[in-house]
Design a protein around this nucleic acid. Structure first.
Lengths: 144, 144
DNA sequence: AACTGTTGCAACATTAACTGTTACGACTGC
DNA sequence: GCAGTCGTAACAGTTAATGTTGCAACAGTT
């Protein structure tokens, strides 16, 4: 699978905002987060926009604008982030319909669909076990 | 993640070869498999080449050439196929190194690396629970 | 009312991976 | 030698993520 870094960057941004707020600041800007993640502010705004739609962060506009958490890091899991930024299924079916007159061509999709669903369910369960607070604590532990 | 269909096509090909051999044939051609999967024979040959490197199938050249299973379907799991055709990790890190002078930038990669490894281990465990024989039986059950 | 800093978003370029296709040499049974 | 198939290179097409520029919208401050 083409591995992408959307989940990684989203987790980075959330941890950054969370830590920044604990240091007494109200909001974080996409510019600051982009500097920490070494990427472009627009990339951060796009990702945070998806997290806002999922109810994980809020944004303010105007002067003194920026991003803040909509919930505590303790209540956010990697599954929340995953579902906000990764739309598709883990494994895709054929791009074109297999030959339906063939026994395998006819039965392979329902068979795999079932199996894939079970595996994704397990993946979701694992992702739900990790909170963003867990991640921030791990991050802080690395600097000691 | 950009979902891809490599695992799906590889499983399709293996199930097809397995069934074809049970019907008394020695080898299957990439042309036949491509027809069933509704794709191009070269795509099949490329994928089966990776499965051959993993020791799952064998190929013969020359006249009357084609592909055959190197092991029983009972002894092949989806994990074997996954490892043969999916090289990278499930989730990628940042494309560029995050800002190391930032606490989050410095600690985020080791923290996520740990978490991702645990999740991939669970995924592997799930994939290892499904054999290609299971899949073929599911396929055949769909046609009854 | 003007100024300032930031978001929201569109538009486009770049990169990477997968997929599809054509072509042709290598091989081997007949 | 012939015929059929693999092995593989080369290239085009497609899709998704990422990076970049530009600018309107917004809201606090002066």
């Amino acid at each position: 699978m083409s591995a992408n870094s959307r989940l990684t960057i989203a987790a980075h941004a959330l941890a950054w905002i969370g830590l920044y707020q604990r240091q007494g600041h109200e909001v974080a800007t996409s510019e600051q987060i982009a500097t920490s993640a070494n990427t472009n502010p627009v990339v951060i705004r796009r990702l945070l926009g998806e997290l806002r739609r999922a109810g994980l962060v809020e944004s303010r506009r105007g002067a003194g604008a920026g991003w803040s958490l909509a919930r505590e890091l303790e209540s956010m899991t990697l599954l929340d982030v995953y579902e906000a930024v990764e739309p598709g299924p883990l494994f895709a079916m054929h791009r074109t319909t297999p030959h339906q007159e063939c026994v395998v061509g006819h039965g392979i999709q329902p068979a795999l669909q079932n199996i894939y669903e079970g595996i994704e369910e397990t993946l979701r369960h694992e992702l739900a076990r990790v909170t963003l607070e867990n991640i921030l604590q791990d991050v802080l532990a690395a600097s000691r």
